[in-house]
């Protein structure tokens, strides 16, 4: 038996696949048909339930045999091969293109029909979220370079070719663990990891948040945006380009209520707009 066409339309509405006109039409129809609206709500609840149920796989440590596959027959030396040259060329184009960002706009945006947001932000934001889920559960190697090593900021600054500051989030209850370099679409990005100060509850890891930093593409919107994937919240924005202060894309990711994550994002924004010569805290 084929589902009636109306169901297809309601599903497309739920998945945010309709154009504005059609969406408004469906929403008006749903207001007049509360029983159908209840059915759609159940579908949405089922989707939430499936995510809640299966998201736990994301937090599991990745089995060694899988990471071994990825690194098998890896180039023995860091010497650039032809493949790398292509990447380098792409990166050079990106650098020449320069980064022009607008000043940050403190409007918090949320897609209107976000019940099942389809795209989930630009792909670099997805990378920030994935990098968070990959490294936060890590017990032995959460970071590449520990916070205590004073070359951390220098190293990241050099590799990202923009000033990387280590933010002091102690007033928010978080201390720096360290950082790592990550690949982004067109060059390196950085991840800074912070964890809650003080003893974690027995048998639990301390709560960790990560900050993802990258050079933004030209024309990246500067608006301050929020996204949520399961329990994990994510704020992202682009800090403006100004003399002595090149544009920088930020994402802060953590399993925290939106208000607390916002407080952290604001602390970062405040410290970032302070003089670039401010002493990095660690």
């Amino acid at each position: 038996m084929n589902a009636p066409p109306i169901d297809t339309l309601l599903n497309a509405w739920l998945d945010d696949e309709l154009d504005a006109e059609k969406r408004i039409e469906v929403e008006a129809w749903l207001r007049d048909h509360p029983e159908e609206a209840a059915r759609v709500r159940l579908w949405a609840a089922d989707a939430e339930g499936l995510r809640a149920r299966l998201d736990s796989v994301l937090a599991e440590p990745v089995p060694q045999r899988l990471t071994q596959v990825v690194w098998s027959q890896a180039p023995a030396t860091a010497a650039p091969n032809t493949g790398w040259m292509r990447w380098a060329a792409a990166f050079a184009v990106f650098v020449v293109g320069g980064a022009v960002g607008a000043a940050i706009a403190w409007r918090v945006e949320r897609p209107a029909a976000q019940m099942a947001s389809s795209s989930g932000g630009p792909s670099w934001v997805q990378r920030a979220a994935v990098a968070h889920s990959v490294y936060v559960p890590e017990v032995r190697h959460p970071v590449e370079v520990k916070a205590q090593e004073e070359h951390l900021a220098r190293w990241l600054t050099k590799r990202l070719e923009m000033p990387v500051k280590l933010f002091d989030l102690r007033s928010q209850g978080f201390e720096l663990v360290g950082g790592r370099l990550l690949p982004d679409a067109k060059g390196p990005s950085a991840q800074l990891m912070y964890q809650s100060i003080g003893e974690a509850p027995a048998g639990q890891q301390p709560l960790r948040v990560t900050i993802y930093l990258r050079k933004p593409e030209v024309g990246t919107p500067a608006a301050f945006r929020y996204e949520q994937q399961g329990r994990t919240g994510l704020f992202y924005w682009v800090e403006g380009d100004s003399p002595g202060h090149p544009a920088c894309g930020y994402a802060i990711v953590g399993d925290l209520p939106r208000e607390r994550l916002l407080a952290l994002a604001e602390a970062i924004e405040r410290q970032d707009s302070a003089s670039p010569s401010a002493t990095p805290a660690s």
Binding site: V130, A131, V134
Partner: peptide
Amino acid sequence: LGAIPRLRR
């Protein structure tokens, strides 16, 4: 490597 957690899910 970054794609592994979601591939596993």
